[in-house]
């Protein structure tokens, strides 16, 4: 496992099926992938390619049919629900497409929620720095419905950053935002990786969003369908076209990182 030390999250021969027998649907058909620490990775693929399932399995939100998932060198596929819950709140951060915040809590309470749940102390300096960086200082007392979509998503990013998790999973973080707010959130995620050394794994279908990442992992029909280092919008678009055309029986062009 010495090699895995470099990885914030990894999956080995990961399979996820729904149903049984002939009618079974294989959302993930044996995916092996690893994400080094400090990387901003994007997972892309056409609808139904299994990218959301991959994220959910990596994050310990969903059970797997077979294979292993490691977060921060912990094999989470062997953990109990209780241990998994504890691991999620200590080592994993989330940013979702929508419904990101608890509507009854203020922005500040939402940010601190994972820490409060874990009964961990708040690092004041870190909190101030995150709040400053994300420009939320004057929004702390507001409730979610008093915030714009972009602001809500920034609060979600702040919440994910505050516990200094091993990895932040972002599921279509810009899906519900206008382009200006989307750019803002992507820039923040980019900053978190470059300046703070945070690991971010983002699921997206937007080539513009993917172009902010260090690496793009392509999925098609539940299998890896290639990857792209230092992507641009154009390279992502052409790779996507390739991935869509590629037949699943062809050997994947991926190389193990």
């Amino acid at each position: 496992m010495s090699e895995s030390q470099r990885f914030a999250a990894s999956a080995v021969e990961l399979r996820k099926s729904y149903g049984a027998g002939d009618s079974a649907v294989h959302a993930l058909a044996g995916v092996t992938v690893a994400f080094p620490r400090g990387e901003f990775a994007a997972v892309m693929g056409p609808s139904g390619s299994g990218k959301s399932t991959l994220m959910q399995c990596l994050a310990g939100l969903d059970s797997v049919s077979s294979g292993q998932v490691y977060i921060d060198d912990v094999r989470i596929t062997a953990l109990s629900d209780r241990a998994l819950t504890k691991l999620r709140r200590d080592r994993v951060g989330f940013v979702f497409q929508s419904f990101n915040l608890v509507p009854t809590l203020t922005a500040r309470q939402n940010m601190l929620l994972p820490l409060s749940l874990a009964r961990h102390r708040v690092d004041r300096a870190w909190l101030d720095q995150v709040v400053q960086t994300l420009g939320l200082a004057d929004r702390l007392k507001h409730r979610p419905h008093e915030l714009s979509g972009g602001q809500q998503q920034r609060v979600a990013v702040a919440r994910a950053l505050l516990s200094r998790p091993a990895v932040i999973f972002a599921d279509e973080p810009t899906g519900n935002l206008d382009s200006a707010a989307g750019t803002e959130v992507l820039t923040l995620l980019r900053q978190a990786v470059s300046q703070l050394g945070q690991t971010v794994i983002m699921v997206t279908h937007d080539p513009v969003a993917a172009s902010y990442a260090d690496r793009v992992v392509m999925l098609a029909d539940g299998e890896l369908a290639g990857e792209l280092a230092n992507p641009t919008v154009e390279s992502v678009l052409s790779a996507l076209a390739q991935a869509s055309a590629a037949s699943p029986v062809q050997p994947a062009t991926s190389s193990r990182p």
Partner: peptide
């Protein structure tokens, strides 16, 4: 339901 899911994702145990 979705809110409960979010809370569970953020680390609320079943017992909690």
């Amino acid at each position: 339901r979705r809110e409960s899911g979010l809370l569970r994702a953020l680390g609320l145990t079943r017992g909690q």
